[in-house]
Design a binder for these strands. Structure first.
Length: 420
RNA sequence: GCGGCUGUGGCGAAGUGGUUAACGCUCCGGAUUGUGGCUCCGGCAUUCGAGGGUUCGAUUCCCUUCAGUCGCCCCA
């Protein structure tokens, strides 16, 4: 038996996930963002309406099936649609707080061919902010994303672009009109994208140098006056926040709901290969309405946790795993006494493991070493009689005899023991 | 969905159409019955991802399949 294709058990990587989640939590707290948890399963329709029927994610990557009541349901492929659904369902827009933010973290599912930093069940975390159309909202959202990755110790490039809103379709039409005469010169992928996802053509790695692309209209030309001002304000604001960025006119996001500002955070390809986008986001001013809510603007982003993990590992970033304070080595049939001591120490806040059966000291001390225990405490029949235990400090070296009633005191006096 | 590469013990890794599948690490036991890390001795793959085929004989050749990996599409 083994995991399904593209699925994985998190064991050795747990500390990385813990670190990332903790970092996200602390940044969220700084911005007073509440956590929201939504179900993994949603009505299929939510994603069709939210992400767009034409998007690849919906067309061929969702885990969709009928439940026993013949309802068509889908394992969520991303987080935003669910959060928006929740926002509308609970009429959060009617709350007196008009500017509301949420963050989420959890598993997402996409039926794709796995590769580096890409899986069928993967974990993402995201922030969503509802109620403000101001560039300041965009700025804080980008700042949060940037803060999370820099706090993790990763160097990222921030790329931004603006797709516009009102004239987004007009831009797409112009782009198609421009490229249509050149269609035959383009790669097969682009010919397909011409119909399914024209904006994506701009991102093509093959036709990069094609003259038709070089002369293609830029999205910026199709921004309304107001949107152009908004985009300028975002760029300006990033400079004020001292967040370096580059404007990438070819940056288009894969999901249909994005409007106006879009951005991605990328790490060096040397860390992640081609899947080097660790965070993507932008505005989705029409989505709330599209999903049946009022006309509420919103902006957000999502992280791919696996990609952050891969990047952190590539950097040899040290992460702390759970540490063990005391390993109790037993000599002879002394389990009751050993467990009693362990119980006392645990109640005092130490993490303690007891060797579970009699074994040669050599074997037990090897375990002490493998467990990276701070202290080894030896309990045998002599100790039980005398109430004095040998205590070895595995970190600083040395062994001392400690009176039973002094144990907690001695352990606590060590600064890096983990008593709470 | 498409293409390249890979698949040998817990991990890393050699190898060959023919009888006992190297080696390193880890692990287990002992030298050393109350103090590990060094050293020495001994042990640990009825089996080479799975299924089928060719063959007197397959881990080795062929087919299929599964999985991993890298890239494309797409995306986090």
């Amino acid at each position: 038996m083994q995991t399904l294709k593209g699925m994985f058990d998190i064991i050795d990587e747990r500390p990385y996930y813990a670190l990332i989640r903790k970092t996200i939590e602390s940044v969220a707290a700084q911005f007073h963002v509440k956590k929201i948890e939504t179900p993994l399963l949603e009505a299929t329709e939510l994603f069709h309406r939210g992400l767009g029927d034409g998007s690849d994610v919906v067309r061929k990557e969702t885990y969709t099936f009928e439940d026993r009541g013949k309802r068509l349901i889908t394992l969520r492929p991303e987080g935003t649609a669910s959060v928006v659904r929740s926002y509308i369902e609970h009429k959060l827009y009617a709350l007196p707080q008009t500017d509301q933010s949420f963050y989420y973290e959890g598993p997402m599912f996409r039926y794709e061919r796995p590769q580096k930093g890409r899986f069928r069940q993967f974990y993402s975390a995201g922030f969503e902010r509802f109620g403000s159309a101001s560039p300041a909202a965009d700025l804080e959202v980008i700042q949060m994303a940037h803060k999370v990755v820099t706090q993790l110790g990763l160097e990222v490039t921030v790329e931004i672009n603006s797709l516009g809103t009102a004239r987004k379709n007009e831009y797409i039409d112009a782009l198609k009109a421009h490229l249509k005469p050149h269609l035959k010169e383009l790669c097969p992928d682009c010919q397909a994208r011409f119909e399914t996802n024209p904006l994506r053509m701009l991102d093509c790695k093959i036709d990069l140098e094609n003259s038709a692309f070089l002369s293609a209209p830029a999205p910026e030309a199709f921004l309304s006056q107001e949107e152009a001002v908004h985009f300028e304000a975002v760029k300006n604001g990033l400079s004020h926040l001292k967040i370096p960025f580059i404007v990438n006119p070819k940056l288009v996001r894969g999901l249909d709901y994005y409007t106006q500002t879009v951005f991605e955070l990328k790490v060096s390809e040397s860390l992640l290969g081609q899947q080097n986008t660790v965070c993507g986001g932008g505005r989705y001013d029409l989505l709330v309405k599209e999903l049946g809510g009022p006309d509420v603007p919103a902006v957000g982003f999502g992280f791919g946790l696996e990609r952050l993990v891969v990047a952190l590992k590539a950097l040899d970033k040290e992460v702390k795993d759970l540490s063990l304070d005391v390993y109790i080595v037993v000599l002879g049939p002394v389990f009751n006494e050993a467990l009693a001591v362990a119980t006392l120490l645990r109640e005092a806040g130490f993490s303690v493991k007891v060797h579970p059966q009699e074994a040669p000291l050599k074997t037990q001390f090897k375990q002490v070493e493998h467990e990276k225990a701070h202290f080894a405490l030896i309990i045998g029949e002599e100790e039980i009689k005398s109430h004095v235990y040998p205590l070895k400090d595995q970190v600083h070296g040395g062994e001392q005899k400690v009176q039973a009633d002094q144990l907690i005191h001695v352990l606590s006096s060590h600064g890096d023991a983990h008593a709470k």
